[in-house]
Amino acid sequence: MPLPAKAFQRWLHGIAPDTSTADVCRLSGVKRTTLAQQLVRGKVAEATVVSISRAFGANPVRSLAYFEIYHGLADQSILPTPQELVSQISTVDLLRAVIARSGTGTAPHTSEAPQAGLLALGPAAHATSVKNWVDAIDDGELRHRVSAAAGIAPQNYSAQLTANRMAPEVAIATSRAAGVGLTGGLVATGLVTEAEAGWEPGARQAALDMMPDGELAVLAGDRLQAMGKTLRRQEQDQEQTDMILENLG
């Protein structure tokens, strides 16, 4: 649920008291028409607050916590679980880790200390980060609990996961239902960065390094399989489209 315009105006006044709307937009990169539309409708998107916070050097997570529905975000005492951290590592990075650990790689740099982070990990929000995050915190019943708590149909929830999208309030509801820190979903959807969410720098790499070889291999295998399925589906769709266009175009 987007943020009420009144509360947004109050928050904006607090963070940028003497700045005109035009300047706020110029500095934050939010389109003026977009902001005006959101204000007229009385619903301001979370992403708008995040962009403006960054422009004015405020922490986006703390800014969101200003709003009633996100009050809970102020408490950042629950750290992300190792599973959550690893879920935010892209499939390709996981596969690289498998190869690096096997020690049989032909590349010369594998002889160097493998723990030294020879390859920096890609950003936290990757191509399948939302689904991977939910999988990482799911105890088997999570999806049902979220549907019930957030009032969202299970098939719509799955569709969001497949599309790698999730509304911020659903992300929070998911965290609550799983009993993990509230920022995980916001990081997975790319709304905020891991640093803004208060995750330690290198926390993902550390969680990855701690993972036993077997567990890593299984996880990487699962991810690779899911990736293969997605690619195959895309290819089939493309083939079908090509055939339609060739015959009827």
Partner: peptide, 23 residues
């Protein structure tokens, strides 16, 4: 309906989509 599909092809050609793999 036929015109729509035809437009889809015009569009796919414009973006170089036809015949290329999605990957």
């Amino acid at each position: 309906g036929l015109i729509m599909v035809w437009l889809a092809r015009v569009r796919a050609k414009g973006t170089g989509g036809l015949g290329t793999s999605s990957t």
